[in-house]
Amino acid sequence: MSEQVIPGRNTAAAEGGIVVFHIGIRINRFRAVRNWFPAFASMPRMLRELSQDKGSGLLGYKVLYGGPRDFYVVQYWASKEQLLAYAYEQDKQHRPAWAAFNRRARNGKGHVGIWHETFIVPAGSYESIYVNMPAYGLAAATGVIPVGRRGDTATQRLKSGDRAS
């Protein structure tokens, strides 16, 4: 992602519905490295795999730090079908990582936690604004356009999204 500031008021170039997927890890016991490190290390491999496959449905993502124990990723997907397809594909990184996590979790006594939340967001149900910012969040995933193309206020941008569906 470019860190170059885009002057003025902009919005995401997203069209139609999107899926927002949050996934995170919480290290409950730092000293139990063998329990949490494999799960921690699997996410970059999955993100690389998804980013290299233009048909995967992953539009973009942002890795975030939630504190010394918490790391998470916000992902933007084109559809829930593509997100779920990736989760269950036998020949992709996710399935073996998930199976390995479950095996370690059974023996790990809660040393590591994971979580995820999925939001299905129909067209017209999201809006965005970025003022003097690099492409960020949804805009980094879908592109940036001047805010006036969708409306100058949040209300106008939400109504603009209704027409995109």
Results as ranks from 00 to 15, higher is better:
1 M>F: 11
2 S>T: 06
2 S>V: 02
5 V>I: 15
7 P>E: 07
7 P>F: 00
8 G>P: 09
8 G>N: 07
8 G>V: 02
11 T>L: 10
12 A>K: 05
12 A>M: 05
15 E>I: 07
15 E>T: 12
17 G>S: 14
18 I>V: 14
20 V>M: 08
23 I>D: 01
23 I>W: 06
23 I>F: 06
24 G>N: 01
25 I>M: 15
26 R>S: 12
26 R>W: 05
27 I>G: 02
28 N>T: 06
28 N>W: 05
29 R>H: 03
34 R>V: 00
34 R>Q: 04
34 R>M: 04
36 W>A: 05
37 F>Y: 12
37 F>K: 12
39 A>I: 05
42 S>R: 09
42 S>D: 07
43 M>S: 00
44 P>C: 03
44 P>T: 02
44 P>F: 11
44 P>R: 03
45 R>P: 01
47 L>I: 04
47 L>F: 07
48 R>D: 09
48 R>F: 03
49 E>Y: 01
51 S>A: 13
54 K>Q: 10
55 G>A: 09
57 G>L: 03
58 L>P: 13
60 G>V: 07
60 G>T: 08
64 L>P: 00
65 Y>F: 13
65 Y>W: 14
65 Y>L: 11
71 F>H: 07
71 F>N: 11
72 Y>H: 13
72 Y>G: 02
75 Q>G: 12
75 Q>F: 08
76 Y>S: 10
76 Y>D: 10
78 A>H: 15
78 A>V: 12
80 K>M: 06
82 Q>Y: 04
82 Q>V: 03
82 Q>G: 08
87 A>F: 11
87 A>N: 13
88 Y>Q: 15
89 E>M: 05
90 Q>W: 05
90 Q>G: 01
93 Q>L: 09
93 Q>I: 11
94 H>M: 09
97 A>D: 07
99 A>V: 13
100 A>N: 15
101 F>K: 00
102 N>M: 11
102 N>C: 10
103 R>P: 10
104 R>T: 04
105 A>F: 09
106 R>S: 05
106 R>F: 10
107 N>D: 12
110 G>K: 13
115 W>Q: 01
116 H>T: 06
117 E>M: 06
118 T>W: 00
118 T>D: 03
122 P>R: 10
124 G>N: 13
126 Y>P: 11
126 Y>G: 13
127 E>C: 09
128 S>I: 10
128 S>C: 10
133 M>L: 14
134 P>L: 01
135 A>D: 08
137 G>V: 12
138 L>V: 05
139 A>K: 11
139 A>Q: 08
140 A>L: 07
142 T>R: 11
142 T>D: 00
143 G>T: 06
145 I>P: 08
147 V>P: 01
148 G>Y: 08
156 Q>N: 04
156 Q>G: 03
158 L>H: 04
159 K>R: 14
160 S>F: 15
162 D>A: 09
163 R>D: 12
165 S>P: 01
165 S>V: 01
